[in-house]
C-alpha cells in the first residue's frame, strides 16, 4: 500500500515520508521541485528499503490532478494515504493581488483539487486516509497573514465537509493544524513560544493517523491558545495588532 506526500520538500513532509517509510509503506514523493523530490525519494529508499517514486507536482495545474493520482497508483499501487502538505505563505498583505491570488490558488483551490481527485479513488475503493496540513493561521483572520490564513481556513472547512461525506464510505480524513515548528519559516525568529521539531510533528501525526483521529493540533497547547483567540470578541480583536 502506498503513501503519497504532496509538497514533500518541507522538512515536516520529509519527516513524514520517513515515518511512513519506516513503517514499511511505499512512498511517492511529489513536489514543485522535481529534483528535490527525487533526492527525498532516494533518501527514503536507502534508509528504509521500501519502494519509492517521485515526480514534479504543480498544485495549480488543477486539470491534471486526476491523471496525476492515476499515475501514482500505476507506479506504486493503490493509495492508502495521501498527505497534502504543500503551502505558500506569499509575500504578505502588502503585495499586489497576483500574490494573494497565487496563495489562494495553492493553499485552497489546489489543495481541494488534489483532495477531490484522491477522494474519488478512495471513495470507490471504500478505504484510505486523506491528511490535510492547515494552519492555526486559519482559525482567525489577522492583518499580518489573512490571505494565507483565509485560504488555509477554507481548506479546513473543505476537509470538514469531505470528512462528513466520506465517513460512511470508510475513508478517513484528518485535519492537522500546526503551530510554530522549527522550519524555514521560523528559523531565526523570536517566537516567544516553544517551537516543535519537524520530527516530533511527524511522530505525533503518524500516531494520530494510526488512531484515525479527525483533527490534530500540534504542538497540542495550540488548541487551547486558538480557543482563547477565537473567543475574543470582534470589537476588541479588530483593534489588536496581531
Amino acid at each position: 500500500m502506498s503513501v503519497l506526500i504532496l509538497g514533500a520538500t518541507s522538512r515536516i513532509a520529509q519527516q513524514l515520508a520517513h515515518r511512513f517509510g519506516e513503517a514499511g509503506h511505499a512512498i511517492f514523493v511529489a513536489a514543485r521541485d522535481a529534483d528535490e523530490a527525487a533526492r527525498i525519494a532516494a533518501d527514503v529508499a536507502v534508509r528504509y528499503r521500501v519502494p519509492t517514486a517521485s515526480a514534479g507536482f504543480d498544485a495549480r495545474a488543477f486539470e491534471g490532478h486526476p491523471a496525476f493520482v492515476a499515475d501514482v497508483e500505476a507506479q506504486l499501487g493503490a493509495l492508502e494515504v495521501a498527505i497534502i502538505a504543500f503551502g505558500d505563505m506569499g509575500a504578505g498583505p502588502t503585495a499586489d493581488f497576483a500574490d494573494a491570488h497565487r496563495v489562494i490558488d495553492v493553499n485552497f483551490t489546489g489543495a481541494a483539487s488534489i483532495a477531490e481527485a484522491v477522494a474519488t479513488v478512495m471513495e470507490a475503493r471504500g478505504d484510505g486516509s486523506i491528511i490535510g496540513l492547515t494552519s492555526v493561521a486559519g482559525d482567525r483572520g489577522r492583518q499580518s497573514n489573512y490571505v494565507y490564513g483565509s485560504a488555509k481556513g477554507a481548506f479546513g472547512l473543505y476537509l470538514q465537509g469531505l470528512r462528513n461525506r466520506l465517513f460512511s464510505k470508510g475513508v478517513h480524513v484528518m485535519t492537522v493544524k500546526l503551530g510554530f515548528v522549527d522550519t524555514r519559516m521560523t528559523f531565526g525568529m523570536e517566537t516567544g513560544l516553544p517551537v516543535a521539531s519537524p520530527e516530533a510533528v511527524s511522530r505525533a501525526l503518524f500516531r494520530a493517523w494510526e488512531r484515525r483521529e479527525d483533527a490534530l493540533y500540534y504542538p497540542r497547547f495550540w488548541g487551547g491558545i486558538m480557543g482563547v483567540i477565537k473567543a475574543i470578541p470582534e470589537r476588541i480583536f479588530k483593534r489588536l495588532s496581531l
Binding site: T9, S10, R11, Q14, D33, D35, R184, M185, F187, G188
Partner: peptide
C-alpha cells in the same frame, strides 16, 4: 522571508563565540 538570521555560533570548546548571519538550507537550490 529573510534568508539570513544573525546568530552567535561557537565550537565545542565554546571559545570563541562569534556572530554571523546564518541560513539553514533544506534544499540544494
Amino acid at each position: 522571508m529573510e534568508r539570513w538570521s544573525e546568530l552567535e555560533l561557537h565550537g565545542w570548546g565554546r571559545y570563541p563565540r562569534l556572530r554571523s548571519a546564518c541560513t539553514r538550507p533544506e534544499r540544494v537550490s
